[in-house]
Design a protein around this nucleic acid. Sequence first.
DNA 1: CTGTTAGCGCTTTCAA
DNA 2: TTGAAAGCGCTAACAG
Lengths: 364, 364
Amino acid sequence: MPADRGQAGPPTISEVAAEAGVGRATAARTLGGYGYVSPELRERVLAAAEKLGYRANALARSMSTGVSHTLGVIVADIANPFFAGVVRGISDTSRARGFDTIVLSTYEDLDEEVAATNVLIDKRVDGVIIASAAVDRREVAHIKGATDRGIPVVLVDRAVASLDLDTVVIDNRDAARGAVETLIAAGHRRIGFVWGPPMPESPATRRGLLAEASRNLWTDGERLRGYLDALDDARIPFDPELVMVGRKTEERVTEDVARMLALPDRMTALFCTETDGVTGSLRALRAAGLSYPRDVALIGFDDSAWAAVMEPPLTMIEQPVHQLGAKAAQVLLDTLEGAGPARETHVLRSRLIVRSSVAPPPRS
Amino acid sequence: MPADRGQAGPPTISEVAAEAGVGRATAARTLGGYGYVSPELRERVLAAAEKLGYRANALARSMSTGVSHTLGVIVADIANPFFAGVVRGISDTSRARGFDTIVLSTYEDLDEEVAATNVLIDKRVDGVIIASAAVDRREVAHIKGATDRGIPVVLVDRAVASLDLDTVVIDNRDAARGAVETLIAAGHRRIGFVWGPPMPESPATRRGLLAEASRNLWTDGERLRGYLDALDDARIPFDPELVMVGRKTEERVTEDVARMLALPDRMTALFCTETDGVTGSLRALRAAGLSYPRDVALIGFDDSAWAAVMEPPLTMIEQPVHQLGAKAAQVLLDTLEGAGPARETHVLRSRLIVRSSVAPPPRS
DNA sequence: CTGTTAGCGCTTTCAA
DNA sequence: TTGAAAGCGCTAACAG
């Protein structure tokens, strides 16, 4: 219970010094935990601080030291389980090392991302971790701006080709290829691809698709490449009709998959790059009176407790979400502690969790 | 592109003033957007700021104004979809009103909660939103400490009886009662209750259970009361064996539900207070070779896209997560803007989403 | 070992 | 209207 000092605002270090009958610097030294101070005075200061309920003003401290012990984090959406997990990884490891985090969501809007970056610069965070929506060279000015000011930035989940920065990702291309190969190995040749990023309109060609993919969300572009890799390896012709145009919501996915399901020579397997794609596809299957894995085999990204309790349980790709964040924080903190930026790309392992949503295609 | 000034650190307002050939105060006035300044000088300052890539130091500004335009948020676990949604609600509405947020997770550990509160006090946040694990009168000192320092606090998701503060919650008791009534209306009388908070050991009596409930997590205690309400109204005798001792993980739930399922005069319905309880129960049912709703009816808390695509789809209680956060932020910001704390309790509506996991009990 | 003093970058009287 | 100067609470030289 802090003594009532009849003053406005919380007690300052000067008041503690006065209460203890010592100089301001002595109080600062014991409370700040630096420099020498005799045991007696130390005790007196501690007692005074306790009595007044003193808590250091971190803002003032940052002002004079120039460091805030705060990390900035920018992701698409904190409510998305993937990012929530990454953020938890970041805050767990940064808190353990004495840093707090300010998390900002952009909802995939580049203007929001720029604004968020500015907020972090203004608040003088010591470093930034960002899952950027930027792809184009002209879209990275805000990130360059941060590094130019000496704020270290590490990229998480999404690499940015035009930026030479520490990066922590999984191998999306490889993960997707592995999943699609699993489908192919089971005998499938008509495999649908359901993805996330919105596109102006459906490119009818493979070339157009890839161009679009590189202009859009990095992860999904990589996953599309993995899908194509697997198809190529198996000499399966690419059919653009089996690639869903990016539509963000689960409802849209449901509509689109329903349309794909109505196509002649119906697909016998479905690969989804996002969780909404999985649930949307499941709805479409049910609406069409189809079931998995009998009629259509299914693999999707981002495992969850639910995927395991589905009947039948779903084969899913598990991303090391927590570790993704933890590693990003570790790399950032290491460079803050003087290790100098390594400008490395750390590729974490994802894992295909095989359950029961893949079976051979039905005999036509 | 900020001009290279051959100096360390980002440009300050003094440098901008020098560049523009005006006094420091004039630069501060135009850049801070307050006070009078002639159009000409204004232009000169703006141009200089632009040229140098000036960004105000929010820390310095907070130092002199005494406000940080930052809200602190303390929840159990940012990676829990419920809290992730609440946090998103908070940050959406606070960002819209010019405030940023610092989010800290406690993992239901009171010491962590105290530490988190101190971090926020030290960082001089303007207000705090907290889903506190505190129940006992002696556990709320840290919250009192914050309000004593003049930091407004609003409680979200969990009320704290001994604290007279603005509070935003749903009516957990009523929501639980409604769900259990639905089960009873379908003909069930042996209804299991699967809950979250860990308990030292299973209290064998109703009284012991309630005592434990009030000593543990607030929301789950309320939900237990709702369960008992419904039982009482229907004159169904209370059987402590049907109330699962709180065990945190999905695995534990699975074990415990399996044991409950093995009891004589087997329960015909299950009510789960948390998502992990639902998935854990589903696993236990499957392991026992039982299916829902045929053998056991099922209702749980926290709807999700997955619950809707289960086969059969699950009847669930949907909480207004985003709104919970948004309202809490709104109340806090209103009091920060001088509206004076109303010390009200805002009760938001939850909703029972009826799907197909409830059917009459099997004929014995 | 301790106290004095000068900043950190900004806002805010107060004169000019 | 503008500028000089004091002050927010803390750290960090620098004497003593």
